[in-house]
Design a protein around this nucleic acid. Sequence first.
DNA 1: TTAGACATGTAATGGGTTACATGATTGT
DNA 2: ACAATCATGTAACCCATTACATGTCTAA
Lengths: 188, 188
Amino acid sequence: MSLPHAILTALLEKPSSGLALTRRFDRSIGYFWSATHQQIYRELGKLEQAGFIRALPSAQPSRGQKKEFEVLPAGRAELTRWASGEQDPKPIRDALLLRLRASAVVGRDGLDAELRRHLTLHRGQLAEYQEIEDRDFGAATAPEDRLRRLVLRAGIGLETFWVEWLEEALAEVTQMEGVTGPGDDAGG
Amino acid sequence: MSLPHAILTALLEKPSSGLALTRRFDRSIGYFWSATHQQIYRELGKLEQAGFIRALPSAQPSRGQKKEFEVLPAGRAELTRWASGEQDPKPIRDALLLRLRASAVVGRDGLDAELRRHLTLHRGQLAEYQEIEDRDFGAATAPEDRLRRLVLRAGIGLETFWVEWLEEALAEVTQMEGVTGPGDDAGG
DNA sequence: TTAGACATGTAATGGGTTACATGATTGT
DNA sequence: ACAATCATGTAACCCATTACATGTCTAA
C-alpha cells in the first residue's frame, strides 16, 4: 500500500492536479515508484473520500476541468505514521534473471542480444541519474536535499550494479558461444 | 506474465507436485521470483488447460492426493519463445526509497532504526547467497551451472549494493541527528 | 481415534495494466 | 468549424495477497 503515500508525498511537496502528478510520476517520483494516470486518478478519489486531501477551492468540479489537490492535516498524519513504521523489503522479482535460468534449460538463443539491449538501457538510465545529481545536488546541505540525494544515489547504485552485472554476464555468455547447451540444437 | 514461465522452468528441471513447487519457490527459484502456493495451484490449472503440462499418469485426481506434473512439448516451446524474446526491464519500485523521500517532508522519526533493521536483513540475505555460492559453485564449468551461477551472482550483487547504500544512508542520517528538519517538531 | 502434518483448493479483496470514453481549451 | 492537446474519468481483466475450507496420510 504505497501508492497513496507516494501521492501524499508528492502533494505535500507541491499541490497539483491529476495530470501534473502523472507528469511528476514520469520524472522524479517515478524513478522509484511508477504509476499511470488511471492509478493516480482512482487513488486521488479515494484519498479525497478518506479526508486526506481536498480539491483547492478555486477548482471547478467538472469533467475536463483542471482540479488541484492539497493535503489536509489528516493526510500528513497518515503519511507520518506510514513513513515511521516498519516494512520488510520485498524479495527480488526480476524477469531477466528468470529468463536466464530458463535459458539454462531450453537454450541460449538470442540471449546475448537481449543482454546487450538491457545493457544499453541501463547505461542510459545511469547517465540520466548522474546528470540529475550533477545538476541538482552540486553542494546540497539542507536535510531534505540530503535525503533526496540519498534516494537518487540508490538509483545510481542500482543502475551501476546492473551495468556491471550485465557486462559480466555478457562475458560469460560470449565465452560459452559454440559450446553445446540444452535446447541449442547444436548437439542433438 | 512471468509466473507460468517460472513454473515451466521449475518443472523442466524436475517434475513436481504443487506443494513441492511451493517449497522450491521458497528456496532457489523464489530468490528472484517469489510465489505463494495459491498462485502456483491456480497457474498449474491454467497450464494444464492450455496443454503445456500434464499430470503424471500415476497421480490420482482427487483432493488431498499428491498430483505431479511434467512439461509437454508445447510447454517447452512456449518457454523457449518467451525466454528468447524481448522484455524491457521494469522501473524500480521500492517502498523504502519512497519512505525516505516522505521523511524529507514529514520528518525522520524512527528512520535510523528502520535503516538499521533493513541493513541486518540484507546482510543476512547476502550471507545466505554467499554460502550457496561457496557450497554449490566451487568450480562450475557446465554451461547450465554457469548460467545458474550468474543468476546467483545477481542476487549477491544486489544485496551487496543494498548493504553499502544502507551504510551510507545511516551515516548521513546519523550526521543529521539534532539538526532541525521538517516535521521533526524540534523547530516548530 | 485423534492430532498433526501433508496436500490441494475456493473466495474475497485490492493493486496494476490496458483500452476506451468524455469534456474543455487552444490554435488555425 | 476543425484538429490537436489537455484533462479527467470508466470498465474490464489479470495478478497478488490473505484468509479460509477440505481432504489424506501417519503415528501415537
